[in-house]
Amino acid sequence: MTRISITVDGVRYDDDVQPRTLLVHHLRERLGKVGTVVGCDTSNCGSCTVLMGGESVKSCTVLAVQADGLEITTVEGLAGSDGELHPVQQAFHDRHALQCGFCTPGMIMSAVDLLAENPDPTDAEIREGLEGNLCRCTGYQNIVRAVRDAAATMRAGASEPAPAAPEEAPAPAPAPVEVGS
C-alpha cells in the first residue's frame, strides 16, 4: 500500500492504495466519484478524461499513485457552487451534443482543456482537439457546435469587466477539506 493525497473537485482525500490501482478506479470505487466512467482498456475512448494538475488526462491510464499531491477536476466539479453550469456543460445541453451521455463527462472535460489552450478554435481544430474522445451516438456534429458556442460564451465572459475572474486564474475552488478514508 502507498499513501497518497489528492484533491478532487476541491476536496482533499488521503488514502492508502495499491500501486496498481488506476486513478479512475480510485475515483469511482474509493471516493465515490462515479461521474467519471471507464469505456475501454487501451486509452482510446477518453470517457474517463479528467483534469489533473489542470490538464486533461485519461484517468484509466494513470496510476492513482501518479496523482499523489495533484489536483483533480472531474465533471462533478465543473459547475459552480450555486449549481450554475460551466459554459461547456451549458452548450452541450443547448446544442443537443449528447445522447446516451456515457462519453459526455470525458468529452466535456476534453473540451474544457482544449478551450483553456485555444479559446477560439476553428471547427477543424475542435475536431482535432477531441480526437481522443469517442462518441458513438452523435456523429460529433453537435459536439463541434457546442464547443464552438462554449468558446464564444467564454470569450465574451473573459472580456467582460469585473466580476469575471481573469482568464489565467484557476476557477475558485472550495477550501480543501480533510477526508480520511
Binding site: 477518453g46 486533461s56 474522445n133
Partner: peptide, 9 residues
C-alpha cells in the same frame, strides 16, 4: 502522438 490527453502525460 496519440491525442491531447496522451500528450499531457
Amino acid at each position: 502522438v496519440g491525442d491531447r490527453q496522451v500528450r499531457h502525460l
